[in-house]
Design a protein around this nucleic acid. Structure first.
Lengths: 159, 159
DNA sequence: CACTACTATTTCGATGTCGAATTATTTGAC
DNA sequence: GTCAAATAATTCGACATCGAAATAGTAGTG
């Protein structure tokens, strides 16, 4: 389903690549969701647990950068994780503005329960690509993901 | 920032490719948002206007499939677009269950106002990749996006 | 010490998102 | 024609998401 926009050759090519990239990512995430690989967790909740599990306790700000979500959003996600007993908030003793996030035992178990299945599902989904195709895809995404250098006074990326 | 998960070589490769793909898409969308390429529209609103503009009037269900969003979600988006006078709902005369969506004059103007800038921004962002790299990326995404054949009784994709 | 600037997080309001249930309507079986 | 099943869209409740404003706390200047 290519674009119906009539523009220059470069514009058409770019739009088609963009559409394929976003549709690919989207449909991959939908397929993973359909497989129920992360149990009753939402994807944001899973991302937070995964970060804390594999990287250790972190401040709210660090997690926010890690999972590329805004701070205000993270508050909600953590609220729900804490309500469900999967994560614990802890004030920093030296700097009381800072909140450290820790996995609880239940949080750890939860991640261990769902992570292997999630990885298997990913491996299965990506098996349509050969090893070298996957590496090619990764390299292209990395290049595109970093982006072009632009006036840094305009780009207030939080990271 | 590769995964910190310790698994088989295949698992690590897959996870890293997955992370690069999702981060690439995400950060590209964030950069586009920062450039404000679609004015005061949300991305969903933009997608609906773009579909109606380039493909013509469609039923709510068709738009829903086109932009890969659930019907319940589309109702909200259309509500807001209609409130802002960019889109018009019209009951089908033969089948009164069906709603046809039309761009209003304002909706058409709105899209014409933002679309060229959006395309330029995309072209600029994708300029880190050569033409053949873009085509390679598109091809890999297409392959991965379609996915592997699975038991169709389990996959009730609405499309 | 007082004042200001900065930083980390939360609150708030608007929008988007989904799945499940609901409403309105059409279609098919009898 | 009547009733059941299917279909199109909406409503509802829960969660996610963002930006802007508020809150709480730290740090630097004088």
């Amino acid at each position: 389903m290519p674009t119906h926009f009539t523009g220059s050759r470069v514009e058409i090519r770019t739009l088609n690549t963009f559409i394929k990239l976003t549709r690919c990512t989207n449909s991959l995430l939908v397929r993973l969701a359909e497989r129920n690989t992360i149990g009753d967790l939402t994807y944001s909740q899973f991302a937070v647990l995964e970060a804390l599990y594999h990287l250790g306790p972190m401040t709210a700000g660090e997690v926010s950068q890690k999972i590329l979500k805004s701070g205000s959003n993270l508050t909600t996600v953590i609220d729900n994780l804490e309500r469900d007993g999967l994560v614990r908030r802890e004030r920093d003793v030296n700097d009381r503005r800072v909140i450290h996030l820790h996995l609880t035992g239940a949080g750890s178990s939860k991640l261990e329960e769902v992570f292997p299945g999630h990885v298997s599902a990913l491996v299965e989904e990506f098996s349509v690509l050969s090893a070298s195709e996957q590496e090619m895809l990764g390299a292209l995404c990395k290049k595109l993901g970093i982006g072009i250098a632009r006036d840094s006074s305009k780009t207030n990326v939080k990271g």
